[in-house]
Design a protein around this nucleic acid. Structure first.
Length: 462
RNA sequence: GGCUGAGUGGCAGAGUGGCCAUGCACCGGAUUGCAAAUCCGUUUACCUCGGUUCGACUCCGGGCUCAGCCUCCA
């Protein structure tokens, strides 16, 4: 019984899919004119967790996450770098995929590019003009007429009269109403363009999501997600275009994730205070970043704090330390797991993806696992912990490998460490504790921590 | 100005009308040659003012503060 908070109704609602056992999910992806920042990482991870949870519930999920590969900023950046817009976009698409892999984000079912759906956009725009919802200006731009759609504002809860038009941005003289937005932009000579009944041009931003989602999910689908900053105007405009076109409902459930802050200030490209995923991934593993992000609820603002990233690192170390001595089944059956923890985990996830609560269940499970001796069937709990980690996209690596980490260039090799540990064992056996402690200090200076357990010594980095 | 949403212990962060979140940090203890890891225990809380109630951090109302959107933005 999954409940999701629906921005349309401002309430948590029971999720019911249009078709039993199938879910259509559309997420606004990235405009590829620069490398991804932590905010993009949050979107990737939040909807990846939703995707995994829906699949775990038994749904066949058609997950579409688009790529915006034609846009003013792409054109400008490409010109600055003497690249074609296509080449620039491709470069950042590759970078984005590398970031996603590092964060253990599953590929969506479809990853359409705006430029592959131009025909659909032109078709939709044509129909909107026919039905009086859009008009072509004499300069070749086509605008959507906001006043033609009676329900405009229903997602973001605003009334047309309340919007502060022109306060921050000059109003385009070609618009009949200042709130009208562009569907088709006439192209300047050097820009990428496509032929249309209104002359050579390129699509506006909002229309592409309507076209791609309808192409791949149909006119009405289950869930539409994206960052909170897209709620207005982007998603409001998507609804206006799509529902004016079809006369029906566009997306049933609208989900919006909270924004990432840094030093308690909004992170954005225009403020130039954004932290790129690549920079963060130099300091923390993808799994650590992921754990940090699911450590708060997806609708809350998330402040990037070194302390919080460190806490995520410590939490993962605790999980992996508990798993380390056990042999884990890759896909454990129900009777190889402890149902009570799985139930509590599911209950948390079904409550609008309460991942912090889900992690709390995993921590309690870890405590229980650490308390058990061999007679208490610790493997069951270890399997459960590993399984639940997988549900969130973490804990899927070999514990020993993760905890040992990788030697940096100047660091001690695994072989050298093993040799020192062997020497320490001998000095300890002969009660030469002065020397054995020297060895341990030496290793500690190289970031190696020793743990003596059950007559054996194991080690980890960091 | 309009529309959203939020205010929880040293930090992060859930949740509930009356009983413990959880993790990290701190303190005490167990274990250890000493550590590490682990376990046990203790400490610190619910912005403010009213109201409802036997009882509110939890419900209702006012106030204060903060954030997002109203411009491109995930």
């Amino acid at each position: 019984m999954l409940h999701l908070y629906n921005t349309l109704t401002r309430k948590k609602e029971l999720f019911e899919s249009i078709e039993p056992q199938h879910v259509g999910l559309y997420v606004c992806g990235i405009t590829v004119y620069d490398v991804c920042h932590v905010g993009h990482g949050r979107v990737m991870i939040v909807y990846d967790v939703l995707y995994r949870h829906l699949q775990a519930m038994g749904y066949m999920v058609n997950f579409v996450r688009n790529i915006t590969d034609v846009d003013d900023k792409i054109i400008r950046r490409a010109a600055e770098n003497n690249l074609s817009p296509q080449a620039l976009a491709q470069q950042y698409i590759d970078e984005m995929h590398a970031d996603e892999r590092a964060l253990h984000v599953l590929p969506p079912t479809h990853e359409p590019r705006a430029t592959d759906s131009i025909e659909s956009m032109v078709r939709i725009i044509g129909k909107l003009i026919e039905s009086g919802h859009a008009y072509a200006a004499d300069n070749g731009d086509v605008f959507y007429s906001v006043s033609s759609f009676a329900e405009y504002g229903k997602l973001s809860g605003r009334k047309l009269a309340d919007l502060r038009v022109g306060e921050r941005v000059a109003v385009d003289e070609h618009k009949r109403d200042p709130l009208d937005f562009v569907l088709w932009k006439s192209a300047k000579p050097s820009e990428p363009s496509w032929e249309s009944p209104w002359g050579a041009g390129r699509p506006g931003w909002h229309i592409e999501c309507s076209a791609m989602s309808m192409d791949l999910l149909g006119e009405e689908f289950d869930i539409h997600g994206g960052g909170m900053d897209l709620e207005f105007p982007h998603h409001e405009n998507e609804i206006a275009q799509s529902e004016a076109l079809t006369g029906g409902t566009f997306a049933r459930y609208w989900m919006h994730n909270g924004l990432v802050r840094i030093d308690d200030e909004k992170m954005s490209k225009s403020l130039n205070n954004f932290l790129t995923l690549k920079d963060v991934l130099k300091l923390y593993s993808g799994e650590e970043v992921r754990t940090f992000i699911i450590g708060s609820h997806y609708r809350s603002p998330l402040n990037y704090l070194t302390e919080s990233l460190d806490a995520a690192r410590t939490a993962l170390r605790r999980f992996y330390t508990a798993l380390r001595p056990h042999t884990i089944s890759d896909s454990p059956s129900d009777d190889q797991m402890d149902a009570s923890y799985v139930e509590r985990f599911d209950a948390a996830m079904n409550d609008d993806l309460n991942t912090p609560e889900a992690l709390a269940v995993m921590h309690e499970l870890t405590s229980a696992l650490n308390k058990l001796d061999d007679a208490g069937e610790p493997t069951r709990l270890a399997n459960t912990l590993s399984y639940l980690g997988g549900r969130l996209g973490i804990l899927q690596m070999d514990a020993d490998t993760v905890l040992k980490g990788e030697a940096d260039e100047s660091g001690l090799s695994d072989k050298a460490i093993d040799a020192l540990i062997e020497e320490r064992q001998q000095t300890r056996a002969s009660k030469d504790f002065k020397r054995s402690d020297e060895i341990r200090d030496e290793l500690a200076a190289g970031g190696i921590v020793l743990e003596d357990a059950g007559g054996k010594t194991i080690w980890r980095r960091g």
